[in-house]
Structures are given as structure tokens and as C-alpha cells.
């Protein structure tokens, strides 16, 4: 019948639209996408919200190689796939929707808070001034060529750059802010741009949860190694608009 994608937001406790929770038993299967972001709550907590239903975890290959099977299930029944944040932003699950439509299966999307918009907001920045984004990954300059290019071209156009940091669900690897900055610093032009005090580096960790931390730094060398392993986003600002700056003042640590 319908393939439903529902975002669970970014807070400490999972949230879902009332409609979804009330109809929870109409879904013959409930899946949980586990590979784009770590969840800030336990499975049990989620089961609680789902009034006792236990979701089936989906790894990357289940939703990539195995998508046909899930779509076939949704042909005759209602299938629910739960996703951290908002289903269609950074996680690009549109591929799932395309596949469903191609196969004549109906779809429905429930939106929710996204770490992308939360990050821009919590950093005090204007959404209108955010340029191209990227994901910083391991592999030095070789693998992050585009990430450097967008930094340079965004700054050239006076736009901010938002970076997600690599998360590998299979190994539990989560890139930390210091490592991410060091990658950008490998490139001489990027490094000199980052050194400029008017380009502020804002580090946001565990957005939406009680452990949320937002710190702004004028100089990359002042960014410490963060303790533990929290999901993080870093934003490199172009010269902030004065209103943005007024907000950032409260976040500066150097």
C-alpha cells in the first residue's frame, strides 16, 4: 500500500507526528535506518514511543542493494521506515522514493527537525547566506578535493560553508572536529583563509540533545580535541553580517 518515511527529529528523545504514533499498528513492518547518524537514545526508548513495537534495523546495504525487497513489501502493506532527523535532507533517501514511484508503490513523507537547519540556526547564521555543503571524510586532500573547492568558492561569494563529518556505522567511527579542521588545513589556500579572523569556525556537537555544545573560534589552532565521540557539524563562516556577529559573540571561545 504505502511506503512511509518518517523523520524522528534530533532531540534526546525520539519524536514522531501524533498521526504516526496513533496508527503505529497499521504498519505491518517498522524499519529503522541506522547508518547515516548515530541515535542519541536507546532502542528501548524508541520501542517505548512505538508503543511496544520493535523496529528492524536497516544497514546501508539493506536500503541500497536490498531496496527492491522493501518496496515489494510496501506494495501490499504499509511499511514504515524511521530516520534520524529529517528523511530527505542530508540522508538523501530520495533514491528510495524514486524506486518506489518507479515501481508504482505509493509513498508518504513525515518531516521533522533536521540537524542541518538546526546547525545554521544555532550558529546564529542566516540560512540565505549558506553556500554549498559537504561531508568531510578520511583520506586527506585526495578524498576532500571538492570540500576544499566549495570552501574557496563559497568564501569568494561571501557564503558560509557547512560540513557534516564522516560517520561509519559499521565500525562506529565518527570524525571529530579537530581531525576535520586538520584536513582543511592541509590545503595552503584553505589554511590561509581559515587563519583570517573574520572567517569564524563554529563547532556544533550533539545538536538537539542535552549534551549540545556550540563553540566558535577565530583561529583554527585554538580548536581543542574534543573529549569523547559526539556527532559533529562544523561551519566555516564568511565575514558574518553584523546581526550574525552579535549572536556569534556569545559563542566565541578565543
Amino acid at each position: 500500500m504505502t511506503l512511509v518515511l518518517a523523520g524522528m527529529g534530533i532531540s534526546d528523545r525520539p519524536t514522531l507526528p501524533r498521526e504516526v504514533v496513533e496508527k503505529i499498528n497499521s504498519y505491518s513492518k517498522i524499519y529503522l535506518e541506522t547508518y547515516t547518524s548515530p541515535l542519541p537514545y536507546s532502542r528501548d526508548e524508541l520501542v517505548d514511543l512505538l508503543t511496544g513495537r520493535r523496529p528492524i534495523p536497516l544497514r546501508r546495504r539493506d536500503l541500497e542493494d536490498g531496496i527492491r525487497d522493501i518496496i515489494e513489501e510496501a506494495r501490499e502493506e504499509d511499511i514504515l521506515i524511521l530516520v534520524y532527523g529529517d528523511p530527505l535532507i542530508a540522508t538523501t533517501h530520495k533514491a528510495i522514493l524514486i524506486e518506489a514511484r518507479r515501481n508504482g508503490v505509493e509513498t508518504k513523507v513525515y518531516h521533522n527537525a533536521s540537524s542541518y537547519t538546526a546547525a545554521v540556526g544555532e550558529a546564529g547564521l542566516d540560512i540565505y547566506r549558506v553556500g554549498a555543503s559537504g561531508t568531510l571524510v578520511r583520506g586527506g586532500l585526495e578524498m576532500n578535493r571538492r570540500n576544499i573547492e566549495i570552501l574557496i568558492s563559497n568564501l569568494d561569494r561571501g557564503l558560509h560553508t557547512l560540513y557534516f563529518l564522516e560517520y561509519d556505522a559499521e565500525t562506529g567511527y565518527m570524525m571529530q572536529p579537530r581531525e576535520a579542521i586538520d584536513i582543511l588545513l592541509l590545503h595552503p589556500e584553505a589554511a590561509s583563509l581559515l587563519e583570517k579572523p573574520e572567517h569564524i569556525i563554529i563547532v556544533l556537537t550533539s545538536l538537539g540533545t542535552v549534551r549540545q555544545r556550540i563553540d566558535a573560534y577565530r583561529h583554527p589552532r585554538n580548536i581543542p580535541s574534543y573529549m569523547g565521540s559526539e556527532p559533529s557539524i562544523i561551519i566555516v563562516t564568511a565575514k558574518p553580517h553584523f546581526t550574525e556577529m552579535e549572536y556569534i559573540e556569545y559563542l566565541l571561545r578565543d
Partner: peptide
């Protein structure tokens, strides 16, 4: 895809 995380080895 532009983003390197979307064009990994896998």
C-alpha cells in the same frame, strides 16, 4: 555525486 561520502569505494 559531489559529496565524497556518496562516492566511496563501496
Amino acid at each position: 555525486h559531489e559529496d565524497p561520502a556518496h562516492r566511496t569505494l563501496a
